[in-house]
Simulated assay, not measured.
Amino acid sequence: MILGKCPYCEGSVLSKKINVKGKNIKLYSCENAKKEYDESEQYVFTADSTCRFRVYSNAFLRWNKRSFSEYEMKKLLQDEQTIVRLHGRSGSGEYFKYVIPDLEYGISILWDEEVEKA
């Protein structure tokens, strides 16, 4: 499924279901960010890969957010930012933060920016 245009190369960002360590998650990646296993069993970008934009749906597990949804990814690609709801360690206390595209990590949380209340 095509979610939008890549923020770096204008290629299409696709959603794929994958299985990582026995868990089913979604991978949102630019059509130009191709990876494969090399001879040393490392998962690396291919020689013809021209982009590196990739985001796993479980990117925010550390902050008790189970999944980064397709809707959130579409909004991120369209508006170049989106708001996510994160939770404290014990599950208590929720807070909202902006997320933006990041060339190195796929996405980044803007910790120093406060989300304006509507």
Rank of each mutant, 00 (worst) to 15 (best):
K74D: 12
E114N: 03
L61G: 06
F96E: 12
E41D: 09
C9I: 14
Y105T: 12
V84L: 12
L110T: 02
L61C: 09
D79A: 10
S69Q: 01
A47F: 10
V55M: 07
E116K: 02
K74S: 13
K23E: 14
F45N: 11
N24T: 10
Q78F: 09
V99F: 06
S92Y: 13
V20A: 06
N64P: 14
Y37F: 15
E113C: 04
N32D: 06
K65R: 09
G22E: 11
C30V: 07
S12G: 00
K75G: 06
G106F: 04
K23N: 11
L14G: 01
F96G: 01
Y105L: 11
S15A: 15
Y95I: 02
K35C: 05
S12H: 05
S29R: 10
A59G: 01
C51T: 12
I83D: 01
Q78G: 05
R89I: 14
I18Y: 05
E116D: 05
D102F: 07
Y71N: 11
E113W: 09
K97I: 08
I2F: 03
L61F: 07
A47H: 08
G88I: 00
G22M: 10
Y98F: 14
Y37Q: 04
Y71D: 02
Y56D: 09
E114A: 12
V44F: 08
N19Q: 13
K75E: 15
E70A: 15
G106Q: 13
E31I: 06
S67E: 15
Y95L: 10
F60T: 04
D112G: 11
S69W: 06
V13E: 05
G4E: 11
K23S: 03
F45A: 04
I18T: 13
Q42T: 07
G11P: 01
I2R: 08
C51A: 06
L103I: 11
S49G: 04
C30Y: 03
L103R: 14
V20C: 00
L61N: 12
V84D: 01
L3F: 05
E72A: 05
I83P: 10
E41L: 13
K97Y: 03
Y37C: 06
K65Y: 06
F60N: 00
F60W: 01
K97A: 03
K23A: 04
V13G: 01
V44M: 00
E36T: 10
F96A: 05
V115W: 10
W63F: 10
C30D: 13
L86E: 02
K23Y: 01
L77A: 12
D112M: 15
V55S: 05
I2H: 00
R52L: 01
A118N: 13
G11V: 07
